[in-house]
Amino acid sequence: MIIRVFLLCVLFIVMNALGHPWLEQIGRLEVLSKQCELHHKRMDPTGEDLDHILVDHKHKFLYCYVPKVVCTNWKRLLMVLTGRSNTTNVVSIPASLAHNESSHQRLSDIPTSQLPPILSTYTLFVMVRHPFERLLSAYRNKLEDNQASAKYFQSIFGRHIIKHYRNNATQKDLETGDNVTFKEFVRYLITEGVDSASANEHWRSVYSLCRPCDLDYTFIGKYDTFTEDTQAVLDLISAPKLTFPHTRSGKTGDRLRTYFRQLDLDDIKSLYLLYEMDFKLFGYTAENILGYDFG
């Protein structure tokens, strides 16, 4: 304990000299470390556990992508860093190409015997977001949106949710699955879980996707400060000068209360428990919605 406190003091002095956002990392990493010690037994992740971590050998960089946390732009950026795209205009890379399986190497593709030196020497990075805000963003984009890109989710998940979680659903309701309510979506998650084998990555927890208690993350970025955090990470890995695309704000955070008014307190509490580790590990609370926290 004394050694740990000493190291944190040294880290504080160094990061204080560097300024924000490095100074923020002390608190973020300390919260992560303490909560992992309290709530998790560390294990060595293998195989599919590492499927969301993308690899850039050139800059010795590992990025765990989390859907609905500027991951499309980060995937675009990674294509440039790894040389899979030679464009200087990052945002010009089509989203479909950025998400294509062939556009990135995943840590799960690397033989287990080769993982230890990579995990011990590469910079490991994740960008996180308030769990409820991320969840609402996924709902609005995949189940409420009228754009063509949402039709797949509506035809698969929307129809399933309406069939099983809407009282007296009609055949017309089931035709497109494009009018799922937020309350129906939440009931689906509460009943079927967010980290089950059939759960979609857009609403799986960061705890499940990125294994933050089993891997030693170098830097935790947050959606609210993604511009500063992204630049800090790019500087850390000595990346070439690149402009990270500015994300158009959907003002999801401002809409949280409006959507959560559709839920009763028991539903909100059950939903919190599904993402409890994400709340605890990354220092989030439900206070901005309820006026108080469950923790």
Rank of each mutant, 00 (worst) to 15 (best):
Y122P: 01
A95T: 07
G83C: 10
K222F: 09
I110T: 04
E175K: 11
V70C: 12
Q147A: 07
P67V: 04
F226L: 15
D266R: 12
V128C: 09
T123C: 04
Y63F: 15
T258G: 09
D254W: 10
T181A: 04
F132H: 06
S33P: 04
L11N: 10
A138V: 14
L273A: 00
E228A: 15
N100V: 07
T46L: 10
Q35F: 01
L119K: 00
G250M: 11
F6P: 03
R204L: 12
T227D: 05
L136I: 14
S238T: 15
A95R: 05
T46R: 12
V194M: 03
H164Y: 15
K163F: 07
A286N: 13
E276P: 04
L54R: 02
F125Y: 13
E201M: 03
L97V: 11
Q35I: 06
A98L: 06
L209Y: 04
P116N: 10
R211A: 08
K60C: 05
N141G: 01
Y152F: 12
N86T: 13
D278M: 08
I110K: 03
I2M: 08
K41R: 14
G47P: 00
E175H: 02
K34S: 09
S108G: 01
P240L: 14
N288L: 10
H52R: 13
L107W: 05
E30S: 11
T230C: 10
A95Q: 09
S137M: 15
F61V: 09
D109V: 07
Y65E: 10
F185M: 14
I162V: 15
R187N: 13
I53E: 00
D264C: 06
V66A: 14
L38R: 12
S103G: 13
F244T: 06
H59W: 07
F244R: 02
K172Y: 11
C71H: 07
I53S: 01
T176K: 15
H202T: 02
L78Y: 02
L174A: 07
E228H: 10
M15G: 05
D224M: 10
K222N: 11
D195G: 05
N16W: 07
R106V: 09
I53A: 01
F6S: 14
A150W: 09
R129E: 04
R42Q: 05
L236Y: 09
T112N: 08
H59F: 03
G193W: 07
C213H: 06
L281K: 03
L8F: 01
D278L: 14
L273S: 11
K183R: 14
L11P: 00
S270M: 12
F6W: 09
D44P: 08
G253I: 12
Q25W: 08
L50Q: 05
V91R: 01
E24K: 01
T243V: 15
A150T: 01
D145E: 13
V31G: 01
I13L: 14
T230S: 09
V66Y: 10
D109P: 02
L107P: 10
V180Q: 08
Q114N: 09
Q105N: 11
E192W: 04
G19H: 04
D44N: 12
